[in-house]
Nucleic acid binder design. Structure first.
Length: 270
DNA sequence: CTAAGGACCTGTCGGC
DNA sequence: TGCCGACAGGTCCTTA
């Protein structure tokens, strides 16, 4: 499933194929995604031309001359470019056809993804109250520390809260905390400012190196060009239960927090 | 306001 | 092999 590096990899994969082309047709085979796909999508897209594909948090923003399609990939979604005549599979819910002969296809077996339309996407209900982008300069130790005052929630769930900072999903939360040497169960309000500095650096590093590697492929993720990501080879904590910590050889522990798996070293992470 | 749990949905994997 | 439960990359909503 896509975390921020996978979404960014998808963005970079599809943008060059669809920018400056005109939408000729939209096919929605199943409107029942996380929220029903509104008619405004297929009403406004045809005839528009694509100006850019940008990203806010894990949302892809397909910007056109008429407005913006807001696409979220959920847990199992992917987008890729095919030719018009490529047969659609059972989970291929949306096609956007272009005058170039290409089609942008959205596939999502679990249907936790979503598709919306807006003239002012950043003001959209789902985007307006999101936290800063993790790779922006405004996301720093002071900001995180201030947000954490009085918070008893675990640091792992805290950094996964998109209203605090966007784009830190379940894999990279474990990875960043491992690299920062912080116990994922520690209360957010009980992490010192200095350790937030280490954590912010770790988050930025783990996300940017994952983007550089083209994302992490676990099961079925592929970037817009159909290429697998290679970050999985660099994972140090996630999915390594029982395997030796690369620092101290202690077996990596697996716990559950907020109904999500967390992996960490109980010796290195305090 | 915070924190915790449920909800949405399908596919895959491990164990018996 | 076949069946069945556990689990999977997200995040909104409800409840207390």
């Amino acid at each position: 499933m896509p975390e921020l590096p996978e979404v960014e990899t998808s963005r970079r994969g599809i943008e060059p194929h669809i920018v400056d082309t005109r939408v000729t047709r939209v096919i929605i085979r199943n409107r029942r995604l996380r929220w029903p796909v509104p008619k405004t999508v297929d009403r406004n897209l045809p005839g528009s031309s694509i100006s850019s594909v940008t990203r806010r948090a894990k949302y892809l923003l397909i910007n056109t001359s008429n407005g913006t399609a807001i696409l979220h990939l959920g847990m199992s979604g992917s987008v890729f470019v095919v030719n018009h005549d490529t047969p659609a599979g059972v989970h291929d819910h949306v096609d956007i056809d272009f005058d170039s002969g290409k089609t942008l296809r959205f596939r999502d077996p679990r249907r936790f993804g979503s598709l919306h339309w807006s003239k002012t996407p950043l003001q959209h209900k789902l985007l307006i109250s999101l936290g800063p982008e993790p790779l922006d300069d405004e996301f720093d130790a002071r900001y995180l520390w201030e947000q954490a005052r009085g918070r008893r929630v675990s640091i792992k769930q805290f950094i996964m809260d998109a209203h605090i900072v966007v784009g830190v999903g379940n894999i990279y939360a474990s990875e960043a905390l491992y690299r920062a040497g912080i116990n994922p169960r520690r209360a957010a309000g009980r992490v010192a400012l200095q350790r937030y500095d280490t954590l912010v650096t770790a988050i930025k590093e783990v996300l940017s190196s994952a983007i550089k590697a083209g994302g992490t492929t676990l099961r079925d993720f592929y970037g817009g060009d159909g290429e697998a990501g290679y970050f999985q080879q660099k994972l140090e904590a996630y999915g390594r239960e029982g395997e030796p910590c690369r620092q101290c050889d202690t077996p990596i522990s697996a716990i559950v927090q907020g109904q999500r798996s967390t992996f960490y070293c109980r010796k290195c992470q305090t």
